[in-house]
Amino acid sequence: MAQARLDRNEQINGWAFIMPAMVLLGIFMIYPILWSLWMSFQVGRGNAFSFGGLANIQRLANDALLLQALSNTIIFFIIQVPIMIVLALLFAVALNDATLRLRGIFRTLLFLPCVTSLIAYSSLFKSMFSNDGVINQALMGLHIIDAPIPWLTDPFWAKIVIISAITWRWTGYNMIFYLAALQNIDKSIYEAARIDGIPAWARFCKITVPMLKPVILFTTILSTIGTLQLFDEVNNITQGGPGNGTLTLSLYIYNLTFRMMPSFGYSALVSWVIVLIVAVLSVIQFFIARDRRRTT
């Protein structure tokens, strides 16, 4: 009886705590989502649209540009996200050391990229990576290369520029979450491990990483979605070029919506492709997690 009351109490509190957020999301999320789902079955230009059944899905299946955008996005995702997460984690751990001097300064400096304005840093990146920019001059000065690398005019090298740009901008941002989370680890655990003679890297792998797992998961999902929605850098540095080499899903959706003949039905459908990818990734992640649980 008492147990039942406790359960009901838990239920009431559970809903009560999330209620304000649910009401707001219900208003500002559910209606737009339903609208966009409905739109994704509409064909036509601008305001003159009509129900097109599966016509948009057919168009999707034949869309070579979408395929290119998808593969570019996946390349960015596979290469960039791990590099950034590892870097951010290492910086956070280094800066969490209480004996390190100038910690506050270092933290702030590493955080600077994500507040530096997009307009400023994208024009600077473009000039640094231009044919006669400092990067090429430095590499040629050091005799690493003989001829300038066509950073911004070759699809392959342009991808490298974009990956560097996103890593540069977002590593400090991810570091914040780790710094905050590191405070939640009881320092006595480290003390005990140190006394037991466990080396630093083992302490990092065996204590820090497992303790930070929820936040690492959070930043990984965040970066995944961030990459799938990558827009600012490609729009400002390469405009998706050269030769569609840095066209991303999000830029493609933007082009479909605002730069080409407006066909909102189709651009809505492409948006749902991103949602579908995330759904598939989550299911995969769910199965991996379940298998691991079984074996342990």
Partner: peptide, 24 residues
Amino acid sequence: RVFQLLLLFLSIPFAALMVPLFVL
């Protein structure tokens, strides 16, 4: 389940929701 659904919503590009939100 509600939470999982929210995570999925997180990945919807804003451009897809902008017009209906504006109507609202």
